[in-house]
Design a protein around this nucleic acid. Structure first.
Length: 651
RNA sequence: GCGCCCGUAGCUCAGUUGGACUAGAGCGUCUGCCUUCUAAGCAGAGGGUCGGGGGUUCGAAUCCCUCCGGGCGCGCCA
């Protein structure tokens, strides 16, 4: 398909130039703006012209005349000031797209180097909101892309079950609600426990603000939780575990799943930090500041000059406070070391829950652990899916690896960064929040768990499902309620995941209900609808006893015929899925694939209106069109599947 | 103050390892198309000083400089 030909062209032209001109150049290949200019082009002769001090067009003509045959390429032409334009062999391309089947997933060897992707990471003290959904959708889609590309991937969802956020909810239950651990346990069994905590967390924050001395409760609770003693710790365990289960349920609705849940509590109990601390001290990666404002702290110098650490706040990062306690980033360094198998310590694991495919989700445990647990960690490449606000801390973590001499692992530590999801002022007002005059003037309002300001993930999914099921019920009254529900769910998730993925990572999403609840235009349902239409055609043909033949000898003629360009463009696009996948993986940008899926759906809808297959008189052409429909359907389904979007049978 | 990101059509965004023509899409607006494979669709119209200004180049929305506007980060919080 397209990607293979692209590679072939790159190699062939590169080798030819090397041989004929003795120049090693990297051959850039691009898609010309118009089909009349071919399907592939390279401006390489411009670069060559500079080196050889000759006219680019003349060089291009020489190359076009002498390059010889390239498999899959029908002819080479010179255009413009010196472009080499390549025209593909349409018949053979069609064969590779339609007759040989669609893009298959590559298979990872069981002992292949492992890629670790960490995503979701929601503090287990409240319901998930749409910002968390963006994280999960990006991470999950990237995982799908990597796996499809033949990489062995482990998905980690880190659980900070001993942090301030959990502590605050514990304070709420103990001091505001006056609940015993048993009572909290009973509440935790409620299906919407995460919603209860969402409200409680906001109330506790308010309660602290009313009287600052109450913050002592937080400090005390946090300490108790870290040390695992008393009722506070007991309540923290109940809250943490129950909320994680809520989050897993929410994420399962979106088709997002995990392999392992490493938890902060085990990082503490197994003394990961103390071990990392020893390593950092031994290698001189951190230093004890003897004087200045950081006196008594262990600091990590950052950047080139560590002399001015006292003036420039960016020159060094405090890792251990003067009271001997470790900062968050210190624990993160230990965790990152563990991911690469560099810490020399390991977790034990227990089964936590089941995935939909029947597999187990494991969590770290302070108990004995189960003997048949797989080995987690020991990755060769790590992606941390975290929003861009954490860029500085991620930078410190990598600097820590470097300071310990792990250059290789530092180079393979990637902050998979993305901009936050905020609320448009309109969305915030629709939800009944009162904004300050300052906030009303802004383009968007940042969500805040502390303020209880945000769109809860389950609320949005519920709303989407409500909207879609009403429509499905109207369109398909003959289907059972169960079938209707399944379709409505698929469309709702299609709309949501597409919405979260269509923006490039560093575009801030200013969330608006109208956009998120749209099913028309550049949306998931638009793409799903194209698949449904393709399937309807195939189904009708089959009902009439027909089916597409495996091969179309005359395909080349139909594609070359007058009006064949439109068909050819659809074939070309369908054959370009591999390029979209490679591009999305290379740029770590799922939006590239989302865009591709939309374009393919759009091209198909266009084709759908121009060519009526069931009424096509020419049996040969009908067979050709039918095979094309099937090829497009298959590629589009693959693209959507990689985006985590299921195409329903009807809609 | 330092660092990172952003500024493209009324709105939301693609396009930015420099490339070819009238700079694209969706939404919204206006006009058409359902007795034809489901109109969650299609066709058409209108809409842009690619924030401003310099520079590099055969060629700049894309690279460099500078200015303007906006966001985020820079804690002995996580």
């Amino acid at each position: 398909m397209y990607r293979a030909i692209e590679e072939r062209v790159r190699a062939a032209i590169g080798a030819h130039i090397e041989k004929a001109y003795g120049q090693a150049v990297s051959v850039g290949v691009e898609r010309p703006p118009k089909l009349a200019m071919g399907e592939l082009a390279t401006p390489v002769c411009f670069e060559l012209a500079k080196r050889l001090k000759r006219a680019p067009r003349l060089i291009a003509q020489e190359i076009a005349g002498s390059i010889g045959a390239i498999e899959g390429v029908a002819r080479v032409e010179v255009a413009g000031g010196g472009y080499l334009n390549l025209y593909l062999d349409r018949a053979s391309f069609f064969r590779s797209v339609a007759e040989a089947g669609g893009l298959e997933a590559a298979k990872a060897a069981p002992d292949a180097p492992k890629v670790i992707v960490e995503h979701t990471n929601i503090n287990p003290n409240k319901a998930a909101h749409i910002g968390h959904l963006r994280n999960a959708a990006l991470g999950d889609t990237f995982v799908r892309l990597l796996r499809h590309s033949g990489r062995r991937v482990e998905v980690q969802n880190y659980i900070d079950n001993t942090g301030v956020q959990v502590a605050d909810v514990v304070v709420g239950y103990q001091h505001l609600e006056k609940k015993s651990p048993a009572e909290v346990q009973a509440l935790a069994a409620e299906p919407q426990f995460d919603y209860l905590c969402w409200d409680l967390y906001a109330r506790v924050t308010q309660w602290f603000e009313e009287e600052k001395t109450r913050l002592a409760f937080r400090t005390e609770t946090l300490k108790a939780i870290e040390e695992g003693r008393g009722t506070a710790a007991e309540i923290a365990v109940v809250v943490g575990e129950a909320i994680v289960r809520c989050h897993l349920r929410t994420m399962e609705r979106l088709g997002v799943e995990y392999d392992v849940l490493p938890r902060e509590s085990e990082i503490l109990h197994l003394k990961f930090w103390e071990h990392a601390f020893g390593m950092l001290k031994e290698k001189g990666a951190i230093q004890l500041a003897a004087s200045g404002k950081n006196a008594g702290c262990w600091i990590m110098p950052l950047g080139e000059s560590d002399a001015a650490a006292d003036e420039d706040p960016n020159a060094a990062k405090i890792i251990v406070r003067s009271d001997g306690t470790v900062t968050y980033v210190g624990k993160d360094i230990a965790y990152q070391l563990w991911k690469f198998g560099l810490l020399g310590l390991d977790f034990r694991y227990a089964r936590f829950s089941k995935r939909r495919d029947g597999g187990d989700v494991w969590a770290s445990t302070s108990g004995a652990g189960e003997p048949d647990a797989p080995q987690f960690g020991h990755g060769s490449e790590v992606y941390n899916v975290i929003d861009s606000r954490q860029a500085y801390l991620q930078h410190v973590v990598v600097a820590g690896l470097r300071a310990l001499g792990h250059q290789e692992q530092a180079n393979h530590s990637t902050h998979f960064s993305y901009e936050m999801v905020a609320l448009s002022p309109r969305a915030a007002q629709e939800m009944g929040y009162t904004l300050s005059p300052d906030e009303e003037r802004r383009a968007y309002v940042e969500m805040s768990g502390r303020r209880g300001l945000g769109v809860k993930a389950d609320d949005l999914i519920d709303e989407l499902e409500e909207a879609t099921s009403a429509e499905v019920a109207e369109r398909h009254p003959q289907l059972t309620a169960e079938e209707q529900e399944r379709i409505a769910h698929a469309i709702a998730i299609g709309a949501l995941r597409y919405f979260l993925l269509k923006f490039t990572r560093n575009s801030l999403i200013s969330f608006d209900f109208k956009d998120a609840l749209s099913f028309e235009g550049e949306t998931g349902p638009y793409c799903q609808y194209a698949v449904v239409r393709a399937r309807n055609i195939v189904r009708k043909v089959e009902e009439q006893g027909g089916r597409a033949p495996g091969t179309i000898p005359a395909a080349g003629e139909w594609l070359a015929a007058p009006g064949g360009d439109d068909l050819w463009e659809l074939v070309l696009l369908a054959g370009s899925l591999g390029s979209a996948v490679t591009g999305a993986v290379g740029a770590q940008e799922p939006a590239i694939l989302a865009k591709y899926a939309f374009q393919l759906a759009q091209a198909f809808n266009n084709f759908y209106h121009k060519h009526h297959i069931l009424s096509e008189e020419d049996a040969g052409k009908r067979a050709f069109l039918l095979l094309l429909v099937q090829a497009v359907e298959k590629q589009l389904v693959t693209a959507l599947d990689l985006l985590g979007i299921e195409a329903p049978e009807r809609m």
